[in-house]
């Protein structure tokens, strides 16, 4: 075939393909596209050594390995802060999650008194809360903005990483099926 044909036809098809792909992604611009895929999924959850808030507040300075507290059962790690609005909105869903699995909260750059008001006002679905005062734990978990929620299997493997608020849809379509799978 002549090069004169190949060139325009090639350009034409490239553009058609680009447009089609764009069109498709516009039409089903689902939420997962907004997410940065985390390389941590399928890997062992990083450790989470933080000073703890709440139940063991008497020893609040002592660092606590939070992931060790819930060994051998699936659990959820939620990075949140009392100053973040989506974090309060997702509390009801974390409460629902806490009925099935342990939920560990990591308060990102937060103050204990603000945290106390927050928990009192919106509820406390967390079994343990760690204080990540310098944001190191967040970096360690690859968090780039709060809220972010991880689901970890009983073997300590990260199964889900969700960045952003857990909405009704996210809860139903992302978390519930995986938790259902794990329960079986």
């Amino acid at each position: 075939m002549n090069i004169r044909y190949i060139l325009p036809v090639g350009i034409f098809f490239t553009i058609v393909v680009i447009s089609a792909v764009a069109m498709i992604s516009i039409l089903n611009g689902d939420q997962s596209r907004a997410q940065l895929p985390s390389p941590l999924i399928g890997k062992k959850a990083p450790e989470l050594v933080l000073s703890s808030y709440g139940s063991s507040q008497t020893s609040s300075d002592a660092a606590l390995e939070l992931t060790k507290q819930v060994e051998d059962e699936p659990f959820v790690v939620n990075f949140f802060a009392s100053w973040c609005a989506p974090c309060q909105k997702e509390i009801p869903f974390l409460e629902k999650l806490s009925q099935d699995v342990a939920v560990i909260g990591v308060a990102y750059k937060d103050k204990p008194d603000a945290l106390e008001i927050f928990l009192e006002r919106f509820g406390n679905p967390f079994r343990h809360i760690g204080l990540d005062n310098d944001g190191k734990a967040a970096i360690n978990w690859g968090v780039y903005g709060i809220p972010e929620t991880f689901l970890i299997s009983d073997e300590g493997i990260i199964i889900i990483r969700h960045a952003g608020e857990i909405t009704h849809d996210i809860y139903r379509t992302v978390f519930l099926p995986k938790i259902g799978d794990m329960m079986q």
């Binding site: 002549n2 004169r4 044909y5 325009p8 036809v9 350009i11 034409f12 553009i15 058609v16 447009s19 764009a22 069109m23 516009i26």
Partner: peptide
């Protein structure tokens, strides 16, 4: 979609025309 439509229709037919008539 409108923008994409304009894009495809302003590129597609001319290139097709080019493929037919260009040689």
């Amino acid at each position: 979609l409108f923008i994409l439509g304009i894009l495809v229709f302003s590129i597609g037919p001319p290139l097709l025309l080019f493929a037919i008539n260009g040689p």
